[in-house]
């Protein structure tokens, strides 16, 4: 396995009768942003808590840099739990310094690092305020700073984008990208699939404790049906219906939207369209992750 890769290897966890995780495996490579998606209760948080050692797996193993993650190694992980995870009555700066020190930073280093992240995340004016007095968006920033303040080698974030305004989303995305660019594996869970698609190098989809898909967005969408939009003014209605592997989704005036079966050649469609006269538009549209996710989840439930 590659160096500095975070590997989840066949993690299983039951809570009484409920199977929370069933042999969940995926890896997050250095410098990669990995999006972890799934519906509520699918097992995202459980998996993350196992990575952090906050919860013990029934079986399976978490490895980093080729070795099982131990207690000593966990201080090198930055973690952002889903709900808060800060002392409500502690001041922002004190809180970050404290967490940095608990992760092994010397007092001076801890101060420097806390101040750096406070400035970087636009919290300078709030540094002596109690966390509970901040807006939710600002609390989320403090939370991110808390995950980053000890300069971690791995980042694990549970729903970091939930409840953020667009500007905060941009700041958060940028920080995560920069962190990944330094060679740190970054994994985060999210419900905002458009964001995951835009931001992530790879995506894993979990359903009822099982991984149903993992790979780059391209890999995941490759196998899925592709849609084409063709505008050919002189084409007669139903011109595309007989083409092999083509399913007409809609015909709207001169525009036709067709869906290609996996393996069907889009060039055949173009030739057929050109045969009818001029072609004004020929767009290949990849289905968004949202659709893919919906498919993965519904296919799963039909099994």
């Amino acid at each position: 396995m590659l160096d500095r890769t975070l590997v989840l290897d066949r993690l299983s966890k039951r809570f009484g009768e409920v199977v929370a995780l069933d042999a969940v495996s995926f890896d997050v490579r250095p410098g990669e942003l990995f999006g972890f998606v799934g519906s509520n209760g699918a097992g995202k948080t459980t998996a993350m808590r196992i990575v952090l050692g906050v919860l013990a797996a029934d079986s399976g193993e978490v490895r980093f840099d080729g070795r099982p993650v131990t207690y000593e190694m966990r201080t090198r992980i930055g973690y952002m739990p889903e709900e808060r995870g800060l002392y409500p009555k502690m001041k922002v700066l004190d809180q970050l310094v404290y967490l940095a020190q608990l992760h092994g930073l010397a007092p001076n280093e801890a101060h420097r690092s806390a101040e750096t992240w406070i400035a970087r995340l636009g919290l300078a004016e709030r540094r002596h305020d109690e966390v509970q007095k901040l807006s939710l968006g600002n609390q989320q920033r403090v939370q991110l700073a808390a995950a980053l303040v000890h300069d971690p080698d791995v980042l694990v974030l549970d729903e970091p984008f939930s409840g953020l305004d667009p500007i905060a989303v941009d700041v958060m995305s940028q920080v995560l990208r920069e962190k990944a660019a330094t060679g740190v594996p970054v994994v985060f869970s999210s419900h905002q699939l458009d964001l995951v698609e835009r931001l992530c190098d790879r995506v894993g989809i979990i359903r009822s404790g099982r991984m149903v898909a993992a790979g780059t967005v391209d890999e995941l969408t490759e196998g899925a049906a592709t849609q084409l939009t063709v505008t050919a003014p002189q084409a007669p209605p139903g011109w595309a219906a007989a083409l092999p592997g083509v399913h007409v989704v809609s015909e709207n005036g001169t525009s036709t939207v067709v869906e290609l079966s996996p393996g069907a050649d889009d060039q055949t469609v173009l030739e057929a369209a050109l045969a009818t006269g001029p072609v004004r538009e020929f767009t290949r549209r990849r289905p968004p992750l949202t659709e893919l996710f919906r498919n993965a989840v519904t296919q799963g439930s039909e099994q």
Binding site: R49, L52, G53, V54, Y71, R74, T75, I77, Y79, P81, E82, E83, R84, G85, L86, Y87, P88, L99, L102, H103, G104, A146
Partner: peptide, 17 residues
């Protein structure tokens, strides 16, 4: 209870026993 309800305990226990 404060640490539990605010989930700080999750962060703390990821680095402290």
């Amino acid at each position: 209870v404060e640490e539990k309800s605010s989930r700080v305990v999750e962060i703390l226990l990821s680095t402290v026993r």
